[in-house]
Amino acid sequence: MDRQGYLLVVPLIAVLAVVEAYPLAYSVYLSITDYSVGGAFVGLSNYAQLFSQADFLAALSTSVVFSSGSTVLSMVLGVTFAYLLSLVRRGKGFFEAVFLMPLAAAPIIAGVAFAPNGIWDDINTFWHYVLGLPYFSVASNHLFLPIMVLSDSWEWGPMMMLVALSVLASVPRPVYEASESFGASRWRTFRSVGLPAIMNSPVMHFMIVIRFVDAMRAFEIPFAWAGWLNYLYPGAPTDTLSLYLFKLLLQPPTGVIPIPLISAAALVLLVVTLLATTLLFRLMRGLRKI
């Protein structure tokens, strides 16, 4: 297996050239020309305009907050579920299946189910009538972003759980047995053996990066929330970058779709995510070496 190795990658490169390289090059072209007057070269002025827009910067920061939150929370949920499953004696397969449900749900379902009149309606009724506490409004400014993060983590926590379970399964049994024979509790064993194994595994690091990258493109959940809260204009507090661009595309404030701006913004998002990804990878590889 020598030179043929390259030949085997040719179909992949061909596919990527058509569906990635070509559109990206086209995007670059759109971002440095004026689309409305037939493609006159305008240099970086679209980028300058973009960075002078508070909306864009706000959307970018919402995206970063949303992704960071969702990455951390989905990991916490995934590891917690994996630990819970490790305590179950009977019906482990059943609970695993239940915990996996959100993974099969379309992301838009996560946006719909966690809507103010979705499960929060039930929770609020229970909260108020059974626990006797005052109603709370999830549409309030402090709550909807955490709930968006929670819904996204609901969707992807199970993937983290699967990964955590696979790492736990790969820890040699004698290690557990040794720990338990010294009288360590399940929790203690998990904390000193299972958890470090999960947090130091290359696959968990890989999934963390993927999760962050995917969340940076998050669209469905913010889209649904913009609907619930009636935030229809571009640059609303719910807007992640994807949603902001979607609104620019569907409801351009000036009446003309700002194609060059959208292209420039998409490329900026690409560069930011790529930088963050490289940084994350470096960081975690460094942690593994220690």
């Binding site: 990635e20 990206l24 995007s27 995917d214 669209f219 998409a266 690409l270 990804t277």
Partner: peptide, 16 residues
């Protein structure tokens, strides 16, 4: 492949 995963759909879908 990982880098391509970071591509925003808008960078691809609008040209497409």
């Amino acid at each position: 492949l990982l880098a391509l995963r970071t591509v925003s759909p808008f960078a691809v879908v609008l040209p497409l």
